[in-house]
Design a protein around this nucleic acid. Sequence first.
DNA 1: ACCGGCTCTTGAACGCGTTCAAAAACCGGG
DNA 2: CCCGGTTTTTGAACGCGTTCAAGAGCCGGT
Lengths: 210, 210
Amino acid sequence: MQTAKAAGTRQSVLSASLRLFAKDGFQKTTMRAIAAESGQSLGSTYYYFASKEELAGELYRSLRQKHCARAWPKLAAGNNLEAHVRAVLDTVLEVLEPFHDFGPAFVRAALTGAEGPPEPGRDLALWRQAVETARPQPPLSLRQDLPELLWLLERGVVLFWAHDPSPGQRRSRRLIAHAAPLVARLVVLSRLPVVRTIFDDLIGLVRAAA
Amino acid sequence: MQTAKAAGTRQSVLSASLRLFAKDGFQKTTMRAIAAESGQSLGSTYYYFASKEELAGELYRSLRQKHCARAWPKLAAGNNLEAHVRAVLDTVLEVLEPFHDFGPAFVRAALTGAEGPPEPGRDLALWRQAVETARPQPPLSLRQDLPELLWLLERGVVLFWAHDPSPGQRRSRRLIAHAAPLVARLVVLSRLPVVRTIFDDLIGLVRAAA
DNA sequence: ACCGGCTCTTGAACGCGTTCAAAAACCGGG
DNA sequence: CCCGGTTTTTGAACGCGTTCAAGAGCCGGT
């Protein structure tokens, strides 16, 4: 059992790391500096977080939570799929933006932290909502697998964004601007048998991977 | 200018690192161990290789060279595109196989070493050859951009392979088995305007990224 | 033979992430 | 109030990748 005060110190370590990561980036921020900033000893921070990676993972987790909370309302109006895809992806960059200067190592550390795909539950639910509430509705045959494919797309975009050196991450925005209509068009065309076959292959490919 | 003897020591450091990486993996092999194994002092290895990463990069470079040399002849017969794609991708796994136990960090270190895409020249040329010698020939409209797309595919496969924990990397093989016909079918279908449009978008997306 | 300037080698040192045994603080029950 | 056990804190220590000032070996020119 842990006391209330302990939770407080834990939080102070977390916020100290947030402050320092923002100032100096992920790599340059040392565990010793985090300990000093939060007024603790070095060993104490390791009592709460087993590694620097785990610290990144914790911050990233709260970020994705915020992402879901912010993106969800945007799906209410029942726009078309392209708008939904764009909304979710734009929101993820919006939420992540202040953390870009943390450096690619931060995202890598966060994504590699303990769990491979870090409890995909919430994000996947968001994509399911995006698919189900889209009007016109995507073909029934795709409705089941599409969320997973879009979730894969999201991870790809985040990875790209993390390494995007362009000012303001313009390239990542442009990537989304291109990808959203592409996805929408593909989904519409999936009614054609030829395209449908491609989708089947793609899904088979993803299944083979996972 | 460097003497002939120096080149020898350099080579001995390289081969020592190869031996140790194979025995203990990339992460667990220490620079000190490499120095000891090659009969040099620690500082001496740093005289030849600025970092552990660079060591990985050097080994990886020679691997890709071997890959090109081995894959090129397989393209001579003028098979269809699917066979060519499968040949090149299978060969890359074949060449890389002994290095899988080096761990994902090895590939990451190699791919991140100094140059972003490490002089894509040779690999891209291989893909160009694969596209140009395929029979029937891919549509003219794709012939220019297809090599770049396939090269992207190759990097994706390698990345996937590096993290593939399945025994004998079966999953990676399966991935290739699924991806090759998918690519071939997509290329054939690119004669249809709708699919062509998708390709254009995809190429635009890649261009926006690079 | 001696020198000046290189190429190469060395081992100590730095700062890092991480571990650990021991001490301190805390807390409910006697 | 004090005691036993748990939770929290501490600072020293380890091994790592990397850096560096100093020296050793080598070689052509005088």
